[in-house]
Design a protein around this nucleic acid. Structure first.
Lengths: 127, 127
DNA sequence: ATCGCTATTGCAATGGATTGCAGTAGCAAG
DNA sequence: CTTGCTACTGCAATCCATTGCAATAGCGAT
């Protein structure tokens, strides 16, 4: 792997990111450091970083790419369609999901790629 | 709601569709009936049909839109990242998921919008 | 310090999805 | 049948993501 200026930029921005970021946001953030930033380079860098396990990607409620800056436990996301709120899926809930599929089919769920959409308690209560 | 030729085309294609179809596939299918078909019209028609509850949309493993032709029970999807296989999430598994969130947080999961990615039993067995 | 291999980059093109706007045409009322 | 309202359509522009290809530049070897 080669340590290029472009990759340095991407990694620096990611290092300063807490939690999640979409592909487009990352491109934007890189551009503010280096106006020459090219989207394809950013996305390709993300691919290699993901292979290295430094980031994980999933898809938000709208299907856009979303990156979680690792390392750390893989985890899914909850998204409220009504208020736009977002939460990480807690471990006990994750276990329930993973277990349900493993037990029944032997299917191994990739948690980091799970986004569950619905309505949070508050929004469900006030229709 | 107005019954236009464009909508008729979309609905006819959907009526002939068994199960799932992506936005792009639908546009393509409509074009083969009516070469003048415009993507934005198709997507806007889908929005209307979804409001009426005739279709439901979710996002596939790659984040692209996917429509399930209803009516019928909302259901999620399983997707194997290794072999590309796809299955509908069975009711007992769905219950486990919905239950886990409802019990803990009062979060109401929208099943039709759930796509779970991972590796199916066969692929998990042969790494 | 130089060389050469090839991983990476830049760019242009492509594809799917979405939006704003001006013009068109359903449809209901008269 | 005619009229008028406005829900739709068509189009062009835009955005996010991805890919092919030729040119560049890291970096290990010499």
């Amino acid at each position: 792997m080669r340590w290029t200026p472009q990759r340095r930029t991407v990694v620096e921005v990611l290092a300063g990111t807490n939690g999640h970021i979409t592909g487009a946001e990352l491109v934007e953030a890189c551009r503010s450091r280096d106006a020459q930033t090219i989207p394809s380079t950013v996305y390709r860098t993300l691919d290699v970083l993901e292979e290295l396990g430094l980031v994980r990607h999933g898809h938000g409620a709208d299907g856009r790419e979303e990156f979680h800056v690792g390392p750390g436990e893989a985890h899914g996301h909850l998204y409220c369609a009504a208020c736009g709120g977002r939460w990480e899926i807690r471990d006990d809930q994750a276990k329930a999901i993973v277990g349900a599929f493993r037990a029944a089919d032997g299917f191994e769920v990739d948690l980091s790629h799970v986004t569950v959409v619905g309505r949070c308690a508050d929004c469900a209560a006030r229709p």
